[in-house]
Design a protein around this nucleic acid. Structure first.
Lengths: 117, 117
DNA sequence: TATAAATACATAAGAAAATTATGCATAATT
DNA sequence: AATTATGCATAATTTTCTTATGTATTTATA
């Protein structure tokens, strides 16, 4: 019997860009497929980034100057490597602050501190 | 100078329903406006639920039998109270498990444990 | 006391951000 | 030989918000 807690994978709607920024900040230079695999691994299969969400977002981020790309050949197969630009690094810091605030807010709601008194 | 960390409030896309479920689980019976105020308070102004998101979602949840309503008059002003149905309570448990898994996944990504070795 | 802000609901139009489906191609596995 | 994994891309659709608008009562403020 296959077990998967998160059927509703849409919880991370809106968090994808900060997730990618974080990956790139930590790992320096990554290609798209690699990002999906790393997220799957880190989250033990919980978060599965779909290609239809990933690639258009990466393209948008490139247009906006947040990331820059280098295409390399791995044997006969192409890999398009993404890395943060200077502006992208700045924005990553902002995004991480936002994420932390957001996660704390979720924490407050999902695990409310009982009022003692 | 006004200070607000989370300019990008769209981070919680997809998390609104579980948030409402949690509120109703904890507080038993609430009306819409009350939910917005409570979330604002709990999150110290971080999460501001818009009415355009809230009311249609509540209506959908009622249609789906997750919540049921009672309308009461407070003076001359109407309040529509929402509470979890039996099915709603079941679903809340599922949603909370999903939320916890999701939050842990975010934690793994945003605060990765350094590999020691 | 007039005006604004807060309380309380509702809905429509539009935007944002996913999912799902499809397509192409190579490499590895069964 | 056929399937799965790797690796990219995009179009159509759906989900889920934001923004704007509308109505109405109560409270606070200038």
């Amino acid at each position: 019997m296959y077990h998967c807690i998160m059927k509703k994978s849409s919880l991370y709607k809106g968090c994808l860009e900060p997730i990618l920024l974080r990956l790139l900040k930590d790992n320096g230079r990554m290609y798209g497929y690699q990002m999906t695999q790393m997220v799957k691994e880190i989250t033990k299969g919980e978060l599965n980034i779909t290609e239809g969400a990933l690639y258009p977002l990466l393209h948008k981020m490139e247009e906006q100057g947040i990331v820059e790309t280098e295409t390399e050949m791995n044997g006969n197969r192409m890999r398009k490597y993404y890395s943060l630009t200077k502006a992208g690094k700045k924005q990553t810091n902002v995004a991480m602050d936002e994420m932390k605030a957001f996660m704390q807010s979720l924490e407050f709601i999902v695990n409310p501190k009982p009022v003692i008194g």
